[in-house]
Simulated assay, not measured.
Amino acid sequence: MKNLVVGLFLVAFTLTATAQDKMDKNVVKTVSFEQTEGEFTQKALTLSEGTYVFSVTNNNAALEVGLVLIEDGKDGSKPENHIADAYVSQMVKHGKTESSKEVVLKKGTYKYFCPFNKTPQYTLVVK
């Protein structure tokens, strides 16, 4: 009887741990960026694989700013290389914040930048 109770406990624990692990992978996380004139204040990021929403705040950077995310090694000047879901929903005006759609990031290296505020390309690593 004792072995049956221990066995049931282990099965329940395993099922709970597996369900929790699946729930953690389905959580959408927000990454907040701030742009000032000519730059993002976040110079590099390291994230885990998962689903993200990018939030961009325009801190007197330019009349309007945005966000472009590309896989490292791709030409950022070509829109077909952009990860379109990472675009903010609308151009971000002075003092405002806008967010992207949900973006699933897999392991790898990405670059992010703003073509309107002419920022450098910064590195985002997903482990």
Results as ranks from 00 to 15, higher is better:
35 Q>L: 14
120 P>R: 14
35 Q>C: 08
74 K>Q: 12
106 K>L: 08
88 V>Q: 09
91 M>G: 07
66 G>I: 01
104 V>P: 00
51 T>I: 00
61 A>C: 12
49 E>D: 05
50 G>F: 06
46 T>D: 03
73 G>E: 05
103 V>D: 06
111 K>R: 06
56 V>H: 01
114 C>R: 05
118 K>R: 14
68 V>R: 05
116 F>R: 14
37 E>T: 15
36 T>V: 15
122 Y>Q: 05
65 V>C: 11
39 E>N: 11
84 A>Y: 07
58 N>C: 11
54 F>P: 02
62 A>S: 13
33 F>C: 10
40 F>N: 04
32 S>A: 13
41 T>N: 08
107 K>I: 02
73 G>H: 04
99 S>A: 14
95 G>V: 10
49 E>C: 02
68 V>I: 03
84 A>D: 09
96 K>V: 11
115 P>A: 12
73 G>D: 04
118 K>N: 11
45 L>D: 02
89 S>A: 12
36 T>Q: 15
71 E>C: 00
79 P>R: 08
117 N>H: 14
35 Q>S: 11
103 V>M: 05
63 L>R: 14
90 Q>I: 08
104 V>F: 03
104 V>A: 09
96 K>Y: 06
106 K>E: 12
79 P>Q: 09
119 T>F: 09
47 L>W: 01
41 T>D: 09
66 G>S: 07
92 V>N: 01
55 S>I: 05
40 F>Y: 15
80 E>S: 08
78 K>M: 13
51 T>G: 00
59 N>H: 13
47 L>A: 01
54 F>K: 12
110 Y>N: 07
119 T>H: 15
94 H>K: 12
